[in-house]
Amino acid sequence: MIELFDSDDSRAVRNKASILSFYDLVINQKKSEEFVAEFISPAYVQHNPLIANGPEALGQFFGQITRERARARVVVHKIIAVGDYVWAHVNFLNLFNDDPNDTGIAGVDIYKMDADGKAIEHWDILQLVGDPKNSAPWLAPNVSRANPNGMF
């Protein structure tokens, strides 16, 4: 994992650690409903149209996914923290299926953090991760990759 932050910026250090803990506990350890309020402000504004505002809605969203899909997890590849903002480049695996060969969804999550180190606002950009013979599953099946670079 690549981590970029100013170690002298105590907010950035705290916020990076908070988001990494959020991913681990809420998604990888499948404890969303128990722990989401530790990381998400009651005033949380969600910009992903699949999820309602507030920590309870986010906990329920990931709670349902992790109950239904034993393999659901997130891998953080890059994380950048500056002041009150955290950007994470991640691979969400098995969010929509439990296929052991799932290549997942690449995501860039952007969090605005409050003074207490909790996420108060979130945006994301999501893109399906394919394989060399199927670069855009669901959207344009069986289209080969145009380059060998990979998503991460």
Results as ranks from 00 to 15, higher is better:
residue 69 R to V: 00
residue 123 W to F: 07
residue 58 L to V: 01
residue 31 K to E: 13
residue 47 H to S: 14
residue 131 D to T: 02
residue 144 S to I: 05
residue 75 V to K: 11
residue 78 K to W: 09
residue 138 W to Q: 15
residue 41 S to M: 06
residue 78 K to R: 15
residue 102 D to G: 11
residue 112 K to L: 11
residue 148 P to D: 14
residue 88 A to E: 00
residue 111 Y to W: 12
residue 30 K to N: 08
residue 7 S to A: 08
residue 88 A to V: 00
residue 39 F to D: 00
residue 30 K to A: 15
residue 118 K to R: 12
residue 55 P to V: 00
residue 68 E to N: 15
residue 149 N to R: 15
residue 144 S to Q: 08
residue 14 R to P: 03
residue 98 D to L: 05
residue 128 L to N: 06
residue 113 M to W: 03
residue 102 D to S: 07
residue 131 D to W: 07
residue 115 A to Y: 11
residue 125 I to N: 14
residue 53 N to A: 11
residue 146 A to L: 15
residue 55 P to L: 03
residue 62 F to I: 00
residue 111 Y to M: 13
residue 149 N to I: 12
residue 66 T to V: 09
residue 135 S to C: 12
residue 12 A to H: 01
residue 125 I to E: 12
residue 58 L to I: 00
residue 70 A to G: 14
residue 38 E to I: 07
residue 16 K to H: 11
residue 80 I to S: 09
residue 89 H to C: 05
residue 13 V to I: 03
residue 19 I to Q: 04
residue 146 A to K: 13
residue 82 V to T: 14
residue 23 Y to C: 05
residue 135 S to H: 04
residue 69 R to S: 04
residue 84 D to A: 04
residue 139 L to P: 07
residue 90 V to C: 08
residue 21 S to Y: 01
residue 26 V to A: 10
residue 110 I to F: 08
residue 90 V to L: 09
residue 16 K to R: 14
residue 4 L to G: 05
residue 138 W to S: 11
